[in-house]
Nucleic acid binder design. Structure first.
Length: 254
DNA sequence: AACGGTAGCAACCGCAATGAT
DNA sequence: AATCATTGCGGTTGCTACCGT
């Protein structure tokens, strides 16, 4: 038994959005807020499916979007986050205020991939191209070994391709690339006003009191973040192990 | 000026995850 | 626990603008 279609395709528009459709969607969401995407098109008088409305709003009509070129800092941040998270575009987007997952994904595919290739780096593995080619090991986007927990790891690659430590950090030593746990976008808006402590990567993952902590912040970041007891759990938390109760998606509190 | 190739980006599609019943 | 509905994500497609010949 197949899934029911998300909308009556025969009665929906497709393709580029018109100014009038945009206006209708904006005014409806301003009046009623986001959500109920399935019923929104009918209520807003749009001949679009809910998914299309959601995509249009999230990617282009949201008022908090930052349009325009990516800065060099954003470039490097995306590269770093991609090395940690892989193609988790929504998570990466969560670390770049005003940028959307779709925008970052497109930017990655059109600009950053080429940029990395020009540097001689495999955009998929973030390792040198010649080395990536010779390595028999499939290196997932975020090997546990290239996460720095506030310590400068200087180990270089081994011949079997198992370990490359700190390569990205060495390339961009000035960049503050610490990940922080954050709620989804709509929740972020409520929390953005609150001042945030400067947390190290370990604490940002909820691993407080860890021996790897470099910022010595003892209390949890948020009340509903349960901290795994060790840095090994951080690897799980990032989805670096296979059976993930702790996987990348857990970075967003639902 | 015309044409073909390429790059960039908006939008769609299918699937997985999550929530509700 | 099972099923269905809905939402969200990532991969892919297709259109348009730009550039070189």
């Amino acid at each position: 038994m197949g899934r029911s279609p998300c909308c009556e395709k025969a009665h929906t528009n497709k393709g580029a959005w018109t100014k009038e459709e945009d206006d209708r969607l904006i005014s409806y969401i301003r009046a009623h807020g986001e959500g109920c995407w399935r019923s929104l098109p009918k209520a807003a008088g749009l001949l679009r499916c809910g998914k299309s409305c959601r995509l249009r709003w999230i990617n282009y009509l949201r008022p908090d979007l930052k349009r325009g070129n990516f800065t060099e800092e954003e470039d490097e941040l995306i590269i770093k986050l991609h090395s940690l998270l892989g193609n988790k575009w929504s998570l990466i987007a969560g670390r770049l205020p005003g940028r959307t997952d779709n925008e970052i994904k497109n930017y990655w595919n059109t600009h950053i991939r080429r940029k990395l290739l020009n540097r001689g780096i495999d955009p998929a593995t973030h390792r040198p191209l010649n080395e990536a080619a010779s390595s028999a090991t499939v290196v997932t986007v975020a090997t546990a070994s290239n996460i720095s927990f506030g310590k400068q790891e200087q180990e270089t690659s081994s011949s079997n391709g198992s370990v490359v430590k700190g390569t990205i950090f060495e390339r961009c030593p000035d960049l503050n690339l610490e990940l922080t746990i954050s709620p989804p976008r709509h929740q972020q808006q409520h929390h953005q006003q609150q001042p945030q402590k400067n947390l190290c990567f370990v604490c940002s993952l909820g691993l407080h009191n860890s021996k790897d902590c470099s910022c010595n912040v003892a209390s949890p970041v948020t009340a509903n973040t349960t901290a795994p007891p060790s840095s090994a759990a951080a690897y799980d938390f990032l989805g670096l192990k296979t059976n993930g109760v702790w996987d990348c998606t857990s970075l967003e509190m639902k």
